[in-house]
């Protein structure tokens, strides 16, 4: 700091020391969501959702399984960033810290459960 270029002098300054990366990832995951969730919504509308076997076989296909895993990672990451901002705006003191820890548990735990379920279907073969 103090020498170098203009950008070099301001990098890492400001009260939070970071933030642009969070902001940018929110946008990148938003763009990804636009494609992946629209694909998922159209798929849901075309599937006979009441029929377990048909939905199961749909998800067992490699293309659908991979797209859905990507959607889980992208959406859960996106809401993990978004709910962080909501918490930071309305919660202060210890409740904010507790809220952020619970948010991480929820996003990572829920995402793991979703991805494992997809993999179980994709690797499990056709049900009897």
């Amino acid at each position: 700091m103090g020498t170098g270029t203009g950008i070099g002098r301001v990098r890492g300054l400001g009260s939070a020391k970071s933030g642009a990366h969070h902001w940018w990832l929110q946008r990148v995951t938003a763009a990804g969501n636009l494609l992946l969730v629209l694909w998922f919504v159209v798929s849901l509308l075309r599937l006979p959702l009441m029929d377990h076997k048909v939905v199961y076989l749909w998800l067992a296909s490699p293309l659908n399984a991979v797209l859905l895993i990507l959607m889980v990672i992208n959406t859960f990451w996106h809401f993990r960033l978004g709910l962080q901002v909501v918490l930071e705006d309305y919660q202060h003191d210890q409740t904010k810290i507790l809220g952020l820890i619970l948010l991480n548990f929820y996003a990572i735990g829920g995402g793991a459960l979703a991805i494992f379920s997809i993999l179980k279907i994709a690797f499990g073969g056709v049900p009897a």
């Binding site: 377990h52 859960f76 809401f79 979703a114 494992f116 997809i118 499990g124 049900p127």
Partner: peptide, 19 residues
């Protein structure tokens, strides 16, 4: 994130758990 997320995970876990 909250209602949709829980419903979506429940749907997937139920789908993987059987009919």
């Amino acid at each position: 994130a909250i209602i949709g997320g829980i419903g979506f995970v429940w749907w997937l876990v139920a789908l993987a758990s059987g009919p």
